[in-house]
Design a protein around this nucleic acid. Structure first.
Length: 508
RNA sequence: GAGAGCAUAGCUCAGUCGGUAGAGCAACGCCCUUUUAAGGCGUGGGCCCUGGGUUCGAGUCCCAGUGCUCUCACCA
Protein backbone atom coordinates (compact mmCIF):
# COMPACT_ATOMS: atom_id res chain seq x y z
CA UNK A 1 0.00 0.00 0.00
CA UNK A 2 2.86 2.39 -0.57
CA UNK A 3 1.76 5.82 -1.73
CA UNK A 4 4.43 6.39 -4.33
CA UNK A 5 3.59 3.06 -5.96
CA UNK A 6 5.98 0.19 -6.48
CA UNK A 7 8.05 0.15 -9.62
CA UNK A 8 9.30 -3.41 -10.03
CA UNK A 9 12.28 -2.21 -12.04
CA UNK A 10 13.31 0.05 -9.20
CA UNK A 11 13.44 -2.83 -6.77
CA UNK A 12 16.93 -3.29 -5.47
CA UNK A 13 18.00 -6.88 -5.82
CA UNK A 14 21.57 -7.75 -6.58
CA UNK A 15 20.96 -11.19 -8.03
CA UNK A 16 18.15 -9.91 -10.24
CA UNK A 17 20.28 -7.02 -11.47
CA UNK A 18 23.02 -9.45 -12.43
CA UNK A 19 20.63 -11.62 -14.38
CA UNK A 20 19.24 -8.62 -16.25
CA UNK A 21 22.82 -7.67 -17.12
CA UNK A 22 23.45 -11.21 -18.38
CA UNK A 23 20.31 -11.01 -20.51
CA UNK A 24 21.45 -7.73 -22.03
CA UNK A 25 24.89 -9.15 -22.76
CA UNK A 26 23.31 -12.16 -24.49
CA UNK A 27 21.06 -9.92 -26.56
CA UNK A 28 24.08 -7.84 -27.57
CA UNK A 29 25.53 -11.06 -29.02
CA UNK A 30 22.29 -11.68 -30.91
CA UNK A 31 21.07 -14.36 -28.49
CA UNK A 32 17.60 -13.60 -27.16
CA UNK A 33 15.98 -16.42 -25.15
CA UNK A 34 12.61 -14.72 -25.24
CA UNK A 35 12.21 -14.81 -29.02
CA UNK A 36 12.01 -18.62 -28.88
CA UNK A 37 8.42 -19.73 -29.41
CA UNK A 38 8.57 -23.48 -29.41
CA UNK A 39 10.89 -26.31 -28.76
CA UNK A 40 10.92 -29.77 -30.30
CA UNK A 41 11.27 -32.49 -27.68
CA UNK A 42 11.76 -36.13 -28.58
CA UNK A 43 11.54 -37.42 -25.01
CA UNK A 44 10.64 -36.32 -21.51
CA UNK A 45 13.02 -36.81 -18.60
CA UNK A 46 11.04 -39.79 -17.34
CA UNK A 47 11.02 -41.42 -20.76
CA UNK A 48 14.80 -41.43 -20.79
CA UNK A 49 15.88 -42.24 -17.28
CA UNK A 50 14.45 -45.73 -16.80
CA UNK A 51 16.57 -48.86 -17.35
CA UNK A 52 14.14 -50.21 -19.97
CA UNK A 53 14.32 -47.07 -22.06
CA UNK A 54 18.10 -46.91 -21.69
CA UNK A 55 18.53 -50.27 -23.33
CA UNK A 56 16.64 -48.92 -26.35
CA UNK A 57 18.02 -45.40 -26.36
CA UNK A 58 21.72 -45.83 -25.56
CA UNK A 59 23.77 -43.76 -28.06
CA UNK A 60 20.56 -42.56 -29.71
CA UNK A 61 19.94 -38.90 -30.42
CA UNK A 62 17.36 -37.18 -28.27
CA UNK A 63 16.07 -33.63 -27.80
CA UNK A 64 15.08 -32.62 -24.30
CA UNK A 65 14.15 -29.38 -22.59
CA UNK A 66 13.54 -28.18 -19.09
CA UNK A 67 14.38 -25.84 -16.26
CA UNK A 68 17.99 -25.79 -15.10
CA UNK A 69 17.72 -26.97 -11.48
CA UNK A 70 21.27 -28.01 -10.65
CA UNK A 71 24.62 -27.20 -12.17
CA UNK A 72 28.06 -28.62 -11.48
CA UNK A 73 30.51 -26.69 -13.62
CA UNK A 74 34.08 -27.98 -13.86
CA UNK A 75 36.25 -25.99 -16.20
CA UNK A 76 35.84 -27.50 -19.64
CA UNK A 77 33.19 -30.12 -18.90
CA UNK A 78 30.12 -29.78 -16.76
CA UNK A 79 27.07 -31.59 -15.45
CA UNK A 80 23.63 -30.17 -14.86
CA UNK A 81 20.11 -31.36 -14.19
CA UNK A 82 17.09 -30.25 -16.17
CA UNK A 83 13.60 -30.63 -14.71
CA UNK A 84 10.50 -31.05 -16.82
CA UNK A 85 7.05 -32.06 -15.61
CA UNK A 86 7.99 -35.73 -15.63
CA UNK A 87 11.15 -35.45 -13.53
CA UNK A 88 14.84 -34.64 -13.64
CA UNK A 89 17.44 -35.55 -16.19
CA UNK A 90 21.21 -35.11 -16.09
CA UNK A 91 23.01 -33.52 -19.00
CA UNK A 92 26.73 -33.53 -19.70
CA UNK A 93 28.23 -30.62 -21.59
CA UNK A 94 31.81 -30.90 -22.82
CA UNK A 95 33.53 -27.92 -24.38
CA UNK A 96 35.33 -30.03 -26.97
CA UNK A 97 31.99 -31.42 -28.19
CA UNK A 98 29.80 -28.32 -28.27
CA UNK A 99 32.37 -25.68 -29.15
CA UNK A 100 33.40 -22.51 -27.35
CA UNK A 101 30.35 -20.36 -28.03
CA UNK A 102 27.76 -22.94 -26.98
CA UNK A 103 29.82 -23.87 -23.93
CA UNK A 104 29.81 -20.20 -22.99
CA UNK A 105 26.03 -20.04 -23.28
CA UNK A 106 25.80 -23.00 -20.94
CA UNK A 107 28.40 -21.52 -18.60
CA UNK A 108 26.45 -18.31 -18.05
CA UNK A 109 23.06 -20.03 -17.73
CA UNK A 110 21.52 -19.53 -14.31
CA UNK A 111 19.48 -21.86 -12.16
CA UNK A 112 15.87 -21.35 -13.19
CA UNK A 113 16.64 -20.78 -16.89
CA UNK A 114 15.12 -23.10 -19.47
CA UNK A 115 17.44 -24.99 -21.78
CA UNK A 116 16.89 -27.17 -24.81
CA UNK A 117 19.53 -29.84 -25.26
CA UNK A 118 20.20 -32.12 -28.21
CA UNK A 119 22.57 -35.00 -27.67
CA UNK A 120 22.94 -38.73 -27.23
CA UNK A 121 22.08 -41.01 -24.35
CA UNK A 122 24.93 -42.47 -22.31
CA UNK A 123 25.61 -43.69 -18.83
CA UNK A 124 28.14 -41.90 -16.64
CA UNK A 125 30.96 -43.52 -14.73
CA UNK A 126 28.73 -43.51 -11.63
CA UNK A 127 25.84 -45.06 -13.53
CA UNK A 128 23.42 -42.20 -14.09
CA UNK A 129 21.60 -42.22 -17.40
CA UNK A 130 22.35 -38.85 -18.98
CA UNK A 131 22.33 -36.85 -22.19
CA UNK A 132 25.71 -36.03 -23.70
CA UNK A 133 25.05 -32.62 -25.22
CA UNK A 134 25.91 -31.74 -28.79
CA UNK A 135 23.86 -28.56 -28.81
CA UNK A 136 22.49 -26.36 -26.02
CA UNK A 137 19.98 -23.56 -26.54
CA UNK A 138 18.78 -21.05 -23.99
CA UNK A 139 15.01 -20.95 -24.54
CA UNK A 140 13.94 -18.79 -21.60
CA UNK A 141 15.66 -16.88 -18.86
CA UNK A 142 14.76 -16.52 -15.18
CA UNK A 143 15.46 -13.09 -13.72
CA UNK A 144 15.13 -14.29 -10.15
CA UNK A 145 16.86 -17.25 -8.52
CA UNK A 146 14.57 -20.21 -7.81
CA UNK A 147 14.26 -21.25 -4.15
CA UNK A 148 15.35 -24.75 -5.02
CA UNK A 149 17.95 -25.72 -2.50
CA UNK A 150 19.82 -28.91 -3.31
CA UNK A 151 18.70 -32.43 -3.79
CA UNK A 152 20.58 -35.32 -2.22
CA UNK A 153 20.91 -38.90 -3.46
CA UNK A 154 17.59 -39.90 -1.93
CA UNK A 155 15.88 -37.08 -3.84
CA UNK A 156 15.42 -35.15 -0.61
CA UNK A 157 15.55 -31.37 -1.05
CA UNK A 158 17.74 -29.35 1.28
CA UNK A 159 17.33 -25.64 1.79
CA UNK A 160 14.30 -25.41 -0.49
CA UNK A 161 11.40 -23.05 0.09
CA UNK A 162 9.85 -24.35 3.31
CA UNK A 163 7.98 -21.46 4.89
CA UNK A 164 4.33 -22.44 4.98
CA UNK A 165 3.01 -19.00 4.18
CA UNK A 166 5.28 -18.61 1.17
CA UNK A 167 4.41 -22.07 -0.06
CA UNK A 168 0.72 -21.11 -0.15
CA UNK A 169 1.18 -17.52 -1.25
CA UNK A 170 3.72 -18.22 -3.99
CA UNK A 171 2.53 -21.60 -5.14
CA UNK A 172 4.60 -21.38 -8.35
CA UNK A 173 7.73 -21.46 -6.17
CA UNK A 174 6.38 -24.27 -4.01
CA UNK A 175 5.67 -26.34 -7.12
CA UNK A 176 9.18 -25.68 -8.42
CA UNK A 177 10.89 -26.51 -5.15
CA UNK A 178 8.82 -29.18 -3.43
CA UNK A 179 7.95 -32.31 -5.39
CA UNK A 180 5.77 -33.59 -2.55
CA UNK A 181 3.58 -30.47 -2.75
CA UNK A 182 3.09 -31.11 -6.43
CA UNK A 183 2.32 -34.78 -5.82
CA UNK A 184 -0.45 -33.89 -3.35
CA UNK A 185 -1.94 -31.21 -5.58
CA UNK A 186 -1.81 -33.46 -8.62
CA UNK A 187 -3.60 -36.15 -6.66
CA UNK A 188 -6.29 -33.66 -5.69
CA UNK A 189 -6.88 -32.90 -9.37
CA UNK A 190 -7.07 -36.64 -10.04
CA UNK A 191 -9.69 -37.04 -7.31
CA UNK A 192 -11.88 -34.51 -9.10
CA UNK A 193 -11.41 -36.10 -12.49
CA UNK A 194 -12.02 -39.59 -11.03
CA UNK A 195 -15.28 -38.31 -9.57
CA UNK A 196 -16.28 -36.89 -12.93
CA UNK A 197 -15.33 -40.08 -14.72
CA UNK A 198 -17.36 -42.18 -12.32
CA UNK A 199 -20.48 -40.03 -12.58
CA UNK A 200 -20.26 -39.76 -16.35
CA UNK A 201 -20.02 -43.55 -16.42
CA UNK A 202 -23.19 -43.79 -14.34
CA UNK A 203 -25.11 -41.73 -16.89
CA UNK A 204 -25.15 -38.44 -15.00
CA UNK A 205 -25.13 -35.21 -17.00
CA UNK A 206 -22.63 -32.60 -15.86
CA UNK A 207 -24.25 -29.16 -15.78
CA UNK A 208 -23.31 -25.61 -14.80
CA UNK A 209 -25.58 -23.40 -12.71
CA UNK A 210 -25.34 -19.74 -11.67
CA UNK A 211 -22.70 -18.54 -9.24
CA UNK A 212 -24.40 -15.13 -8.92
CA UNK A 213 -27.73 -15.65 -7.19
CA UNK A 214 -30.49 -13.46 -5.78
CA UNK A 215 -31.06 -15.85 -2.88
CA UNK A 216 -28.05 -17.86 -1.70
CA UNK A 217 -29.65 -21.05 -0.44
CA UNK A 218 -29.17 -24.78 -0.15
CA UNK A 219 -26.96 -24.59 2.95
CA UNK A 220 -26.54 -22.71 6.19
CA UNK A 221 -23.84 -20.11 5.72
CA UNK A 222 -23.31 -16.40 5.29
CA UNK A 223 -22.76 -15.45 1.64
CA UNK A 224 -20.41 -13.01 -0.08
CA UNK A 225 -22.26 -10.09 -1.62
CA UNK A 226 -21.55 -8.32 -4.87
CA UNK A 227 -23.22 -5.82 -7.14
CA UNK A 228 -24.22 -5.93 -10.77
CA UNK A 229 -23.88 -2.46 -12.25
CA UNK A 230 -26.18 -2.63 -15.27
CA UNK A 231 -29.05 -4.12 -13.27
CA UNK A 232 -28.08 -2.02 -10.25
CA UNK A 233 -28.86 -4.98 -8.04
CA UNK A 234 -27.15 -6.87 -5.25
CA UNK A 235 -26.25 -10.49 -5.96
CA UNK A 236 -24.79 -13.13 -3.70
CA UNK A 237 -22.18 -15.73 -4.55
CA UNK A 238 -23.62 -19.21 -4.19
CA UNK A 239 -23.11 -21.15 -0.96
CA UNK A 240 -24.30 -24.44 -2.49
CA UNK A 241 -25.42 -25.93 -5.79
CA UNK A 242 -28.63 -27.46 -4.53
CA UNK A 243 -31.58 -25.32 -5.54
CA UNK A 244 -30.65 -24.81 -9.20
CA UNK A 245 -29.88 -28.49 -9.67
CA UNK A 246 -33.31 -29.33 -8.25
CA UNK A 247 -34.86 -26.93 -10.77
CA UNK A 248 -33.27 -29.09 -13.47
CA UNK A 249 -34.90 -32.20 -11.95
CA UNK A 250 -38.21 -30.30 -11.95
CA UNK A 251 -37.58 -29.48 -15.60
CA UNK A 252 -37.23 -33.13 -16.50
CA UNK A 253 -33.56 -34.07 -16.23
CA UNK A 254 -33.19 -37.27 -14.22
CA UNK A 255 -29.50 -37.57 -13.34
CA UNK A 256 -27.50 -34.35 -13.06
CA UNK A 257 -24.40 -33.27 -11.21
CA UNK A 258 -22.18 -30.25 -10.88
CA UNK A 259 -18.64 -29.91 -9.56
CA UNK A 260 -18.34 -26.24 -8.74
CA UNK A 261 -16.86 -23.60 -6.56
CA UNK A 262 -19.03 -22.32 -3.71
CA UNK A 263 -18.30 -19.42 -1.39
CA UNK A 264 -18.98 -19.11 2.33
CA UNK A 265 -18.17 -15.91 4.18
CA UNK A 266 -16.73 -17.62 7.22
CA UNK A 267 -13.51 -18.28 9.04
CA UNK A 268 -10.38 -19.88 7.62
CA UNK A 269 -8.86 -22.95 9.22
CA UNK A 270 -7.02 -26.14 8.34
CA UNK A 271 -10.40 -27.55 7.22
CA UNK A 272 -12.08 -24.39 5.88
CA UNK A 273 -11.33 -22.18 2.90
CA UNK A 274 -13.83 -19.44 2.01
CA UNK A 275 -14.11 -20.80 -1.52
CA UNK A 276 -14.16 -24.54 -1.96
CA UNK A 277 -15.27 -27.16 -4.44
CA UNK A 278 -18.53 -28.95 -3.97
CA UNK A 279 -19.95 -31.85 -5.93
CA UNK A 280 -23.71 -32.22 -5.83
CA UNK A 281 -25.78 -34.76 -7.71
CA UNK A 282 -29.51 -35.39 -7.99
CA UNK A 283 -31.19 -38.53 -9.24
CA UNK A 284 -34.92 -38.63 -9.95
CA UNK A 285 -36.91 -41.69 -8.85
CA UNK A 286 -34.15 -42.59 -6.38
CA UNK A 287 -34.18 -42.51 -2.58
CA UNK A 288 -31.65 -42.30 0.21
CA UNK A 289 -30.83 -46.00 0.01
CA UNK A 290 -30.07 -45.79 -3.70
CA UNK A 291 -27.72 -42.90 -2.94
CA UNK A 292 -25.96 -44.94 -0.22
CA UNK A 293 -25.29 -47.68 -2.69
CA UNK A 294 -24.05 -45.12 -5.22
CA UNK A 295 -21.73 -43.56 -2.62
CA UNK A 296 -20.14 -46.90 -1.76
CA UNK A 297 -19.40 -47.63 -5.41
CA UNK A 298 -18.25 -44.04 -6.04
CA UNK A 299 -15.66 -44.01 -3.27
CA UNK A 300 -14.30 -47.41 -4.18
CA UNK A 301 -13.96 -46.23 -7.77
CA UNK A 302 -12.22 -42.96 -6.85
CA UNK A 303 -9.83 -44.61 -4.39
CA UNK A 304 -9.05 -47.25 -6.99
CA UNK A 305 -8.34 -44.55 -9.58
CA UNK A 306 -6.10 -42.34 -7.46
CA UNK A 307 -4.55 -44.82 -5.02
CA UNK A 308 -4.68 -47.96 -7.11
CA UNK A 309 -6.62 -49.79 -4.38
CA UNK A 310 -10.08 -49.53 -2.81
CA UNK A 311 -8.60 -48.40 0.51
CA UNK A 312 -6.38 -45.70 1.90
CA UNK A 313 -4.15 -44.97 4.86
CA UNK A 314 -5.07 -42.29 7.33
CA UNK A 315 -3.28 -41.61 10.62
CA UNK A 316 -1.82 -45.07 10.65
CA UNK A 317 -5.09 -46.87 9.97
CA UNK A 318 -6.20 -48.61 6.83
CA UNK A 319 -9.63 -47.41 5.75
CA UNK A 320 -11.21 -50.22 3.79
CA UNK A 321 -13.82 -48.96 1.36
CA UNK A 322 -14.32 -52.31 -0.37
CA UNK A 323 -15.89 -53.97 2.70
CA UNK A 324 -19.47 -53.34 1.63
CA UNK A 325 -22.09 -52.67 2.73
CA UNK A 326 -20.70 -50.00 5.01
CA UNK A 327 -21.99 -49.65 8.54
CA UNK A 328 -25.36 -47.89 8.95
CA UNK A 329 -25.87 -46.11 12.25
CA UNK A 330 -28.86 -43.94 13.16
CA UNK A 331 -27.65 -40.77 14.86
CA UNK A 332 -29.53 -41.41 18.12
CA UNK A 333 -28.24 -44.98 18.18
CA UNK A 334 -24.69 -43.65 17.86
CA UNK A 335 -25.30 -41.28 20.75
CA UNK A 336 -26.60 -44.19 22.80
CA UNK A 337 -23.44 -46.18 22.03
CA UNK A 338 -20.81 -43.48 22.43
CA UNK A 339 -22.39 -40.99 24.85
CA UNK A 340 -24.56 -43.49 26.74
CA UNK A 341 -27.69 -41.37 26.43
CA UNK A 342 -30.94 -43.21 25.77
CA UNK A 343 -32.77 -41.95 22.65
CA UNK A 344 -35.87 -41.59 24.81
CA UNK A 345 -34.14 -38.70 26.58
CA UNK A 346 -34.63 -36.54 23.48
CA UNK A 347 -38.33 -36.00 24.02
CA UNK A 348 -37.86 -32.25 24.45
CA UNK A 349 -34.84 -29.95 24.49
CA UNK A 350 -35.16 -29.69 28.27
CA UNK A 351 -35.11 -33.45 28.82
CA UNK A 352 -32.20 -33.70 26.37
CA UNK A 353 -30.22 -31.08 28.28
CA UNK A 354 -30.78 -32.82 31.62
CA UNK A 355 -29.42 -36.03 30.12
CA UNK A 356 -26.39 -34.00 28.97
CA UNK A 357 -25.91 -32.58 32.46
CA UNK A 358 -26.05 -36.10 33.85
CA UNK A 359 -23.02 -37.14 31.80
CA UNK A 360 -21.21 -33.80 32.19
CA UNK A 361 -20.83 -32.89 28.52
CA UNK A 362 -17.71 -30.84 27.69
CA UNK A 363 -19.59 -28.04 25.90
CA UNK A 364 -21.92 -25.21 26.80
CA UNK A 365 -25.59 -26.14 26.76
CA UNK A 366 -26.65 -22.48 26.70
CA UNK A 367 -25.67 -22.24 23.09
CA UNK A 368 -28.02 -24.98 21.96
CA UNK A 369 -31.41 -23.52 21.10
CA UNK A 370 -33.03 -26.44 19.30
CA UNK A 371 -33.34 -30.12 20.15
CA UNK A 372 -31.96 -31.03 16.75
CA UNK A 373 -28.95 -28.80 17.25
CA UNK A 374 -28.25 -30.44 20.61
CA UNK A 375 -28.47 -33.92 19.10
CA UNK A 376 -26.06 -33.04 16.28
CA UNK A 377 -23.63 -31.54 18.79
CA UNK A 378 -23.64 -34.78 20.79
CA UNK A 379 -23.07 -36.69 17.58
CA UNK A 380 -20.07 -34.52 16.71
CA UNK A 381 -18.52 -34.72 20.16
CA UNK A 382 -19.15 -38.36 21.04
CA UNK A 383 -19.85 -40.39 17.92
CA UNK A 384 -17.85 -38.77 15.12
CA UNK A 385 -14.36 -39.35 16.62
CA UNK A 386 -15.11 -43.09 16.62
CA UNK A 387 -16.06 -43.31 12.96
CA UNK A 388 -12.88 -44.71 11.45
CA UNK A 389 -14.21 -47.22 8.95
CA UNK A 390 -16.80 -45.88 6.50
CA UNK A 391 -20.14 -45.34 8.20
CA UNK A 392 -23.47 -43.85 7.21
CA UNK A 393 -25.03 -41.82 10.01
CA UNK A 394 -28.76 -41.69 9.32
CA UNK A 395 -31.93 -40.11 10.73
CA UNK A 396 -30.83 -36.51 11.26
CA UNK A 397 -33.12 -34.20 13.28
CA UNK A 398 -35.68 -32.29 11.25
CA UNK A 399 -34.65 -28.83 12.54
CA UNK A 400 -31.16 -29.08 11.06
CA UNK A 401 -32.31 -30.66 7.79
CA UNK A 402 -34.61 -28.16 6.07
CA UNK A 403 -34.34 -29.81 2.63
CA UNK A 404 -34.75 -33.49 3.60
CA UNK A 405 -37.95 -35.52 3.69
CA UNK A 406 -39.30 -36.44 7.11
CA UNK A 407 -39.44 -40.04 8.15
CA UNK A 408 -43.03 -41.23 7.85
CA UNK A 409 -42.83 -43.15 11.14
CA UNK A 410 -41.17 -40.29 13.04
CA UNK A 411 -41.52 -36.72 11.71
CA UNK A 412 -38.86 -35.47 14.13
CA UNK A 413 -36.28 -37.30 12.02
CA UNK A 414 -35.39 -37.04 8.35
CA UNK A 415 -34.41 -39.32 5.51
CA UNK A 416 -30.87 -37.99 5.51
CA UNK A 417 -27.39 -39.41 5.97
CA UNK A 418 -23.88 -38.19 6.30
CA UNK A 419 -21.05 -40.54 5.40
CA UNK A 420 -17.91 -40.63 7.54
CA UNK A 421 -14.53 -42.26 7.20
CA UNK A 422 -11.35 -41.64 9.19
CA UNK A 423 -13.58 -39.48 11.47
CA UNK A 424 -14.14 -37.02 8.62
CA UNK A 425 -17.49 -36.17 7.07
CA UNK A 426 -17.32 -37.14 3.43
CA UNK A 427 -20.80 -36.57 2.11
CA UNK A 428 -24.33 -35.49 2.92
CA UNK A 429 -27.44 -36.88 1.26
CA UNK A 430 -31.23 -36.77 1.47
CA UNK A 431 -34.33 -38.12 0.04
CA UNK A 432 -35.17 -34.62 -1.15
CA UNK A 433 -38.33 -32.83 -0.17
CA UNK A 434 -40.61 -32.61 -3.20
CA UNK A 435 -43.72 -31.44 -1.32
CA UNK A 436 -43.77 -27.65 -1.85
CA UNK A 437 -46.03 -27.15 1.17
CA UNK A 438 -43.66 -29.05 3.44
CA UNK A 439 -40.72 -27.17 1.93
CA UNK A 440 -42.47 -23.86 2.63
CA UNK A 441 -42.99 -24.83 6.28
CA UNK A 442 -39.33 -25.77 6.64
CA UNK A 443 -38.20 -22.47 5.14
CA UNK A 444 -40.58 -20.63 7.47
CA UNK A 445 -39.06 -22.46 10.46
CA UNK A 446 -35.62 -21.41 9.19
CA UNK A 447 -36.78 -17.83 8.83
CA UNK A 448 -37.90 -17.79 12.48
CA UNK A 449 -34.48 -19.14 13.48
CA UNK A 450 -32.96 -16.34 11.43
CA UNK A 451 -35.15 -13.80 13.18
CA UNK A 452 -34.06 -15.31 16.50
CA UNK A 453 -30.51 -14.32 15.60
CA UNK A 454 -29.16 -17.24 13.56
CA UNK A 455 -27.77 -15.41 10.53
CA UNK A 456 -26.82 -18.70 8.90
CA UNK A 457 -30.36 -20.10 8.85
CA UNK A 458 -31.71 -20.86 5.40
CA UNK A 459 -33.48 -17.87 3.74
CA UNK A 460 -36.97 -18.00 2.23
CA UNK A 461 -36.84 -18.68 -1.50
CA UNK A 462 -40.22 -18.02 -3.13
CA UNK A 463 -38.85 -18.52 -6.62
CA UNK A 464 -37.66 -22.01 -5.73
CA UNK A 465 -40.93 -22.88 -3.97
CA UNK A 466 -42.88 -21.77 -7.03
CA UNK A 467 -40.68 -24.00 -9.20
CA UNK A 468 -41.38 -26.97 -6.93
CA UNK A 469 -45.12 -26.33 -7.15
CA UNK A 470 -44.98 -27.34 -10.82
CA UNK A 471 -44.17 -30.84 -9.62
CA UNK A 472 -40.90 -32.55 -8.72
CA UNK A 473 -40.41 -36.32 -8.87
CA UNK A 474 -39.14 -38.20 -5.82
CA UNK A 475 -35.41 -37.52 -5.85
CA UNK A 476 -32.26 -38.54 -4.05
CA UNK A 477 -29.48 -35.96 -3.68
CA UNK A 478 -25.87 -35.98 -2.52
CA UNK A 479 -23.25 -33.35 -1.71
CA UNK A 480 -19.53 -33.97 -1.26
CA UNK A 481 -16.81 -31.48 -0.31
CA UNK A 482 -14.13 -32.30 -2.85
CA UNK A 483 -11.38 -30.61 -0.87
CA UNK A 484 -12.14 -32.66 2.22
CA UNK A 485 -12.19 -35.80 0.15
CA UNK A 486 -8.82 -34.90 -1.37
CA UNK A 487 -7.53 -34.08 2.11
CA UNK A 488 -8.08 -37.57 3.45
CA UNK A 489 -7.08 -39.40 0.26
CA UNK A 490 -3.75 -37.54 0.27
CA UNK A 491 -3.31 -37.63 4.07
CA UNK A 492 -2.60 -33.90 3.90
CA UNK A 493 -2.53 -31.83 7.09
CA UNK A 494 -4.47 -28.82 5.89
CA UNK A 495 -7.10 -28.01 3.29
CA UNK A 496 -4.57 -25.48 1.98
CA UNK A 497 -2.30 -28.33 0.95
CA UNK A 498 -4.96 -29.58 -1.49
CA UNK A 499 -5.89 -26.13 -2.87
CA UNK A 500 -3.62 -24.82 -5.61
CA UNK A 501 -4.20 -21.24 -4.46
CA UNK A 502 -5.75 -21.01 -0.98
CA UNK A 503 -7.20 -17.68 0.07
CA UNK A 504 -4.54 -15.55 1.74
CA UNK A 505 -4.66 -12.23 3.46
CA UNK A 506 -3.40 -9.52 1.06
CA UNK A 507 0.38 -9.35 1.11
CA UNK A 508 1.75 -6.36 3.08
C1' G B 1 -13.15 -14.19 18.85
C1' A B 2 -9.31 -16.50 22.87
C1' G B 3 -4.54 -18.62 23.80
C1' A B 4 0.44 -20.27 22.37
C1' G B 5 4.62 -20.14 19.09
C1' C B 6 7.37 -17.90 15.21
C1' A B 7 9.45 -13.37 12.23
C1' U B 8 17.65 -12.50 11.16
C1' A B 9 21.19 -12.54 3.80
C1' G B 10 17.78 -14.64 -2.41
C1' C B 11 16.79 -19.96 0.27
C1' U B 12 17.45 -23.06 4.92
C1' C B 13 18.85 -21.63 9.61
C1' A B 14 22.48 -20.32 14.02
C1' G B 15 23.17 -16.11 17.12
C1' U B 16 25.51 -17.92 24.37
C1' C B 17 25.40 -13.46 29.71
C1' G B 18 22.57 -7.26 26.45
C1' G B 19 28.51 -5.23 23.67
C1' U B 20 26.69 -2.86 16.57
C1' A B 21 25.94 -9.99 12.37
C1' G B 22 27.28 -15.79 11.38
C1' A B 23 27.15 -20.78 8.62
C1' G B 24 25.62 -23.88 4.43
C1' C B 25 23.38 -23.27 -0.20
C1' A B 26 22.56 -19.49 -4.04
C1' A B 27 25.41 -15.15 -6.36
C1' C B 28 30.31 -12.93 -8.19
C1' G B 29 35.90 -13.89 -9.53
C1' C B 30 39.83 -17.61 -10.28
C1' C B 31 41.19 -23.10 -10.79
C1' C B 32 39.23 -27.74 -12.38
C1' U B 33 37.30 -32.54 -19.17
C1' U B 34 32.59 -38.20 -15.62
C1' U B 35 30.21 -34.73 -11.47
C1' U B 36 25.82 -35.53 -8.64
C1' A B 37 23.75 -32.00 -1.56
C1' A B 38 30.93 -31.89 -6.90
C1' G B 39 35.47 -29.74 -4.92
C1' G B 40 39.45 -25.80 -3.81
C1' C B 41 40.85 -20.48 -3.06
C1' G B 42 38.82 -15.63 -2.75
C1' U B 43 34.68 -11.68 -2.79
C1' G B 44 30.13 -9.16 -2.28
C1' G B 45 25.46 -9.33 0.04
C1' G B 46 21.54 -7.35 6.24
C1' C B 47 15.25 -1.84 7.55
C1' C B 48 17.81 -8.50 12.44
C1' C B 49 9.00 -7.49 10.70
C1' U B 50 7.20 -2.21 12.41
C1' G B 51 6.81 1.51 16.31
C1' G B 52 7.75 2.81 21.23
C1' G B 53 10.38 1.79 26.01
C1' U B 54 14.47 0.17 29.52
C1' U B 55 19.86 0.76 29.08
C1' C B 56 26.08 3.96 28.28
C1' G B 57 24.69 0.20 24.64
C1' A B 58 19.03 -3.96 22.12
C1' G B 59 18.88 -9.07 16.90
C1' U B 60 18.75 -10.28 22.24
C1' C B 61 14.93 -7.55 27.67
C1' C B 62 9.77 -4.95 28.17
C1' C B 63 5.15 -2.87 25.78
C1' A B 64 2.15 -2.19 21.50
C1' G B 65 1.20 -3.27 16.46
C1' U B 66 1.48 -6.25 11.86
C1' G B 67 1.95 -10.96 9.47
C1' C B 68 2.20 -16.23 9.56
C1' U B 69 1.59 -21.12 11.96
C1' C B 70 -0.81 -24.14 15.56
C1' U B 71 -4.72 -25.13 19.28
C1' C B 72 -9.57 -23.87 20.84
C1' A B 73 -14.25 -21.35 19.64
C1' C B 74 -17.32 -20.46 15.27
C1' C B 75 -18.47 -23.07 10.68
C1' A B 76 -25.77 -28.11 10.86
Amino acid sequence: MSEQGENPLAEHNEQRDLRIEKLKALRDQGIDPFVVERCERSHTAAEISTEESFSLLENQQVSVAGRLVAKRAMGKASFAHLADESGRLQIYVKKDDVGDSIYEIFRVADLGDFLAVRGYIFRTRTGEISVHAQDVTLISKALRPPPLGKMDEEGQAHGALANTEDRYRYRHLDLMANPESRAILTKRCRVVSAMRRFLDGQGFLEVETPVLQLVAGGAAARPFKTHHNALDHEFKLRISLELYLKRLIIGGYEKVYEIGRVFRNEGISTRHNPEFTLMELYQAYADLDDIMELVERMYVSIAQDVNGAPNFQYLGQTIDLAARPWRRLPMLEGIRQYAAIDPAAFETIESGKSACLAINVPFSLDRETTLGGLIEKLHEVYTQPNLIQPTFITDFPVETSPLAKKRQDNPALTRRFEVYAATQELGNAFSEINDPLDQRERFEAQVSQREAGDDEAHPMDEDFLKAMEYGMPPTGGLGIGMDRLALILTEADSIRDVLLFPLMRPDK
